[in-house]
Design a protein around this nucleic acid. Sequence first.
DNA 1: CATAAATAATGACATATATCAATCAGAAAT
DNA 2: ATTTCTGATTGATATATGTCATTATTTATG
Lengths: 231, 231
Amino acid sequence: MTETCISNNCAECNKRLDLFRSLTDAQLEKLNESRFEVKFGAGETLLKQGGPLTHIACLTSGLVKIHIENQGGNNFIMSVVRPMTLIIGPGFLRDNRHHYTVTALAESTACFIPVEPFKKVLEVNSEFALDMISFLNKKIIRHYQNIGNLAHKHMQGKLAEALIYLADDVFKAEKFKSHLSRQDMAELTGMTKESVIRVLKEWKEEGIVDSRSDYFEILKKESLMRIGRNG
Amino acid sequence: MTETCISNNCAECNKRLDLFRSLTDAQLEKLNESRFEVKFGAGETLLKQGGPLTHIACLTSGLVKIHIENQGGNNFIMSVVRPMTLIIGPGFLRDNRHHYTVTALAESTACFIPVEPFKKVLEVNSEFALDMISFLNKKIIRHYQNIGNLAHKHMQGKLAEALIYLADDVFKAEKFKSHLSRQDMAELTGMTKESVIRVLKEWKEEGIVDSRSDYFEILKKESLMRIGRNG
DNA sequence: CATAAATAATGACATATATCAATCAGAAAT
DNA sequence: ATTTCTGATTGATATATGTCATTATTTATG
């Protein structure tokens, strides 16, 4: 472990990343050599859209949102990311710029690895390269969901899909503390915060979803899934 | 050339694909061995969402749309694809299903290559694998545009972005015959066909875009880009 | 050429959702 | 405990866009 490391998660983080399962010890070591960890407070920016993509990041603790910023301050939250997830933007092997911003939702730590050694390892380990392609394809499938939701669904459908995404893919529980404000929920769904509030109120009255600030509990999963499906 | 080949494009198509630039002759031959070509009429389906992803496709002539189908018949057109483009969906190395449908907009021919030899070549040629990652990242960047447009832009902004996409990325000209119906334009932008018609009429009166059925001519590119940017 | 069919265009109307302004509640600070 | 501040909530209103019905235009067909 290098002395730049802050948390004891860090030494192990590469080994625990599923995407790195095919790496040899020597290859892991190559990545670890130049790795360092940084701590972020809630609201702080880990990576900035438009900025240079010099490192890949791995969240080791906390919670972050990945969002694209439009002109006019209109954000869209692409995903909410928990620890042990690799963050590598589509600028990699393209323009080497960030195409999204990553912001901490809670106090978080992230491990940074320069792209060069990462690229070198991809070049010599084809199994890893295929895993990387699979990893990107998974992200693309998720984008299709986003696009399908935004293109034609009504508020209820979009919010239902967002809550199911948080429950199933992010927090893996029916009750969770999201660390997301109403404004964040709006940016996750492409609605306004007022509309989020109104739909949430409606569902609380109907006993479908209970919510208090950033805490959510899905009470009638089936109903919510039906609302999501039917738009 | 195998005897299943119909057009003389086919024998050369792999060599002309930019993505295949790093392949050796032997690797190209490996892909060519099991390659075959199929002809499609306008409106016919090349690949069906949900169906098995057994082959990758390369459009050799014509024009196709790649679209995702929602329950309730709500489509969204992700991209319009011209010849010499590889079509490989995100089900590759994941669930081996198609996550979108590909439909011919005009009479088209496509070359099909089984995924297995393709995967084998990826395994032995790391430069090719990196090119593949770059190719996927390019698609992801395009998805971000789609998402940004759908999340917060008004009709004029969305339609402007769509026309600029067609002019710059697909047809590479300010005048083009799109082969897209008003319904297709609606599905490309997440609007209704009536709204597309109304905005197009408005722009014809203002001299920004001229249009007759599936023919478009962008007259004031600057204005259109401003509309697209400001939403 | 005449007819049918499909697609495009128009207009009237409904409604979902954004916008704006005001109030409320809980957290943080003094 | 009191004040301050931020975010949540509510309500009134405006408006963008969808829906539906009708007519026009183009394309296909016998």
